[in-house]
Structure formats: structure tokens, C-alpha cells
Amino acid sequence: MNDISTWDIVRNLLDGALWTIGLSLTAFVLGGIAGLALLFARIAKNPIPRRLAQGYIEVFQGTPLLMQLFMIFFGSSLLGLEISPWIAAALGLTLFTSAYLGEIWRGCVESVPKGQWEASASLALTHFEQMRHVILPQALRIAIAPTVGFSVQVVKGTAVTSIIGFVELTKTGSMLANATFQPFMVFGCVALGYFALCYPLSAYSRYLERNIHGSRAH
């Protein structure tokens, strides 16, 4: 049993960490795109897309991420679709991320004063042009800090995908713990790995939050 060296453990954990990073980036980018679509649906004038988006957001914010992954992973095989843990994990986290980002961004758009909508409307801009040239540039500044802050939640959320068998940092850790009988040491390293990923993000988010009011956008 002692043929697994500390270096082997670290090397395998680094491998797992790469999958964690890959999954986080995938979920964040795809979730961001879907979140943008949700944002537009949430602030549409037509009540139908607005309600649909609201329902979607409530479902994904109101259930645990683990249950969402179970539904996707086991539900798809029930429908006769064989999907890999990677696809299930990426899909699940993307949907989860989109629901939160959509809602965070809606809050940012709504915090732009009503006068900005009225002034741009009275200059004959269309709804889309108002968003593009007046509202989103201002909302974006407000959104940067909470968006980066939420990315920490995505990174930590990837740990849950180990339960459906996706081999990322946590899953690698539990396999190593079983093989070495040194769970404290292994999971200590796993925790350090997450901290190394998340701390720079949350520190950056704090930095942005502090500076966003101090400096102008230009």
C-alpha cells in the first residue's frame, strides 16, 4: 500500500484540479451566455418570456444542485440517453450558473436609474438600442464584482459533480483517500486546492467592489 508516494498524490490531485478548472470555465462561459438570454427574457415587455424565465430561475435556485445533477444524469438514462458524467456535470452546472447569473444581472440592470431609460427612449432609441448603448454599459460596471464573486460558488459547486462520478478534484481525492488510507492528508490537500482556486477570485471581487465607486468608468 505504501507504493503511492506523496508526489503521486499531488500529481493526481493536480490532474483532478485541471478538470475542476475546465468544468468551472465551461459552466461559467455557457452559463453566462444562457444567463444573458435569461436576463433579456426577464426584462422583456412581453409577460410570457418574463414568466418562463422567472419559473426557470425559481426551479434552479429553489432546488439543491445535487438534485439537479441527479435529475439530469439519471433522468437522461431513463429516457434512454446515455450521457457521460462530464456532459451531465457540465450541463447541470451550466443551468445552475445561468439561473444565478441571470438573476444577478437583472438586479444590476434594474439598479440603473429609470431616468436613463426615459432619456434614451425620448431620443427615439429602440429597446435593444437602449440596452446596448445606455443600460448595459452602466449595468456591466455594477455587475463585475458580484459576477466574479459568484464564480467562487461555481468552482465550489463543481465538487458536487463527484457524486455522479465525474473525476475532478474531490473525486480524485476520495479515490486517493481510499487507496492510501490517509484521508486527512489527502482531503487537506484537496481543500487547499479549492482555496488556491477560490481565494484569488474572491480577493479580486473585493478589490473590484472597493474600486467601483472610487473611480469613474473612464
Binding site: G115, Q116, A119, S120, S122, L123, A124, E129, Q138, A217
Partner: peptide
């Protein structure tokens, strides 16, 4: 709205754009 301009109590200039860009925006976009 292209025939009716409006000026508001609270000015409502676009804070992320320079004065020049504020005046240019609608002429370019609309």
C-alpha cells in the same frame, strides 16, 4: 419621438459617455 425632444428635471445625462458622446449617440444610432 424623432420629432419630439424632451428635457428632464434630473438631466438624465448618460454618465458613462463624455459630453460629446452624449450629444452624438442618438444621431448616430437612430
Amino acid at each position: 419621438r424623432q420629432k419630439v425632444g424632451m428635457i428632464f428635471q434630473q438631466f438624465n445625462l448618460f454618465p458613462h459617455l463624455s459630453v460629446g458622446r452624449n450629444v452624438m449617440l442618438a444621431t448616430q444610432v437612430v
